[in-house]
Amino acid sequence: MIALALQTLLLLGLSPLVTGAIRLGKARLQNRRGPPLWQPYADLAKFLRKDMVVSEHASWIFSVAPYIVFVTALLAGLMVPMVSVAAPLSLFGGALALVGLLALGRFFLALGGLDPASAFGGMGSSREMTIAAIAEPAMMLAIFTVALAAGSTDLTRIVQTTLEPAWGLANPMHVLAFAALFIVLLAETGRIPIDNPATHLELTMIHEAMLLEYSGRQLALMEWGASIKQLVLMTLLVNIFFPAGIATEITPTALGAGLLAYAAKLLLLSTAIVLVETTNAKLRLFRVPDLLSIAFAVALLALFSTFLFP
């Protein structure tokens, strides 16, 4: 129970920080000053206190969607080992439930986009569902490959397996699965080669287009949910592939060291995302399948390499 509460707090507290860090890093690399690191917190606080304007065409789906997006992201996060190797909800579901929960959130997010009868929202929903659909095989194949090595879809067990010394850092399967999941991460979190999180043009939006009609508390929940989802996927990547430093026992020192290691790893991954976002241009929508097919092929190679290099 305590672990659950602590991890929930960590998810809630850390996720805006990661979003802010990536934004700041991008700005600095582009020679801009950029918003301060805590800007996302300020945004959330503002949104939470503001009154809402709801579209006259919207139904209850529109109002329910933010809660579902928020809660599913949190639930998914509780299944991933963050600071300690034992994830609080690992009994209730592993990698497959995580994928399912994120999909549930996306389902309602897309419905929320369609609900206010705006063409932009419909376009965003359509594109979001398409990209999610073609990213899914690569994601599942990469997760399958890692799960095969661990003999389990339970994320705690997967991390425990990768912690064992027999798993060198240079294991080819490892590297390939990481590469595939990294591309999927970019797609799932709406990062640059696929979607531009900072765009102001409705026609190029994907994620933002679905949020156009949201305001106030509902917008806060949507934004927060998206941040949490991003944190969850990033945590998945760093802890499965670089589990070093994660706390294997519940003592204050181990947890403290785990937290530090976790923060350092997140920072590294954020830097990688920032670098990708600044050095690449956004892809045309119909070039996205090319990128994701590379992710799929790399995940396939990861699978092959489980018996290529036993």
Binding site: L75, L89, S90, L91, F92, G93, G94, L96, A97, L101, A147, G151, S152, T153, D154
Partner: peptide, 10 residues
């Protein structure tokens, strides 16, 4: 126990 899930728990 290669994997567990509980929809009720979720």
């Amino acid at each position: 126990g290669p994997g567990t899930v509980s929809t009720l728990g979720i």
